[in-house]
């Protein structure tokens, strides 16, 4: 029972992190129609920025600021130099160009920082445990990560539903020409949205830093999970990204925690271990396939 509650919390925490990534990716696709593989690189850059600065200064706060700034800055830079040339292009070239960006950033980080993983410490304030229910201690930091995910979800909802920028974002997605005819600078709006997505990706990288190790290639693994999330949610839908992130966070965490045990009840140990390992690592793809069979455009399809 205790284990189950713990794992459910872990699932929510992974879901929260995935949502931070998925929100930016799905916004960029929904509004600009761009598939950005380099989203994972921004995640990595955020994590490295935070890990390096926090390690050098000993201040977690400075690390967070550095990580966010690095991700947002690089995001705006690649939007200005590369991404904006891709808005009108076929998805194929978007995939290819952003694939090139990944190669570049992975190589660059390996060259500058090295291939050895960096360790990032948990901030002192959050390093303890909280007793959520009597007898079930849970790391404070992980709770905080969940809180960040939730806060960003609420903040995004507020921004999109209630603010002028949000109105422009909604309008820009569907009536691009109209919005620019009204005198809004679409190019600036796009740069802003892309920068925002980059910031969120960086934030995800920062909060994940102390949980997993910070290393080259960390972005791609999580990027593909993020794809699964937004495909399930419906590409372009922030709400779908949230539901998809929680679903995948849960499925992945619970699958890894409980599948081996379940299988062992029915078959021999070695076979169960092998099968469980394979099965739990592909569970999220099976979930995705099932959702697609029923709803090919995701749970919250956007447009048409």
């Amino acid at each position: 029972m205790q284990l189950l509650i713990e794992q459910i919390l872990n699932g929510l925490q992974l879901g929260g992190t995935l949502f931070l990534l998925a929100a930016g990716l799905t916004l960029v696709f929904g509004i600009m129609g761009v598939i950005n593989l380099a989203h994972g690189s921004l995640f990595m850059i955020g994590a490295y920025g935070a890990a390096i600065v926090a390690g050098k200064t000993g201040s977690w706060g400075l690390g967070v600021i550095a990580g966010l700034a690095a991700a947002a800055l690089v995001g705006v830079l690649i939007e200005l130099v590369v991404i904006r040339r891709l808005y009108a292009r076929d998805h194929l070239y978007q995939v290819l160009a952003t694939f090139g960006l990944i190669l570049f950033f992975n190589g660059l980080v390996a060259m500058v920082v090295g291939r050895a993983p960096l360790l990032m410490e948990t901030p002192k304030v959050l390093s303890g445990f909280v007793e959520l229910l009597p007898g079930i201690p849970y790391p404070t930091y992980r709770l905080a990560v969940m809180g960040v995910g939730l806060a960003v979800a609420l903040g995004l909802w507020f921004m999109i539903a209630r603010t002028r920028v949000g109105m422009l974002i909604r309008a820009g997605a569907t009536h691009r020409d109209m919005v620019s005819a009204l005198g809004v600078d679409i190019a600036k709006l796009y740069t802003f949205v892309f920068g925002l997505g980059a910031l969120l990706a960086g934030l995800a990288g920062i909060v994940v830093g102390p949980i997993r190790s910070v290393q080259v290639g960390m972005g791609e693994q999580v990027l593909i999970m993020t794809f699964v999330v937004i495909v399930i949610g419906g590409i372009g839908s922030v709400r779908g990204a949230f539901v998809g992130a929680m679903l995948i966070g849960m499925a992945d965490t619970l699958g890894r925690a409980f599948l081996p045990g379940l299988l062992k009840m029915h078959m021999s140990g070695a076979l169960a271990d092998g099968l469980a390992g394979a099965l739990s690592s592909v569970l999220i793809y099976i979930v995705m396939a099932l959702v697609l069979v029923v709803r090919p455009r995701g749970l919250f399809p956007v447009g048409g």
Binding site: L86, Y93, L96, G107
Partner: peptide, 21 residues
């Protein structure tokens, strides 16, 4: 040339995507 050849190859790929359809 370099162990970090991807730093050079990545931009080549970007250029192909942008300018050599």
């Amino acid at each position: 040339l370099t162990e970090y050849w991807q730093v050079l190859f990545g931009p080549v790929v970007v250029l192909i995507a942008l300018f050599a359809p």
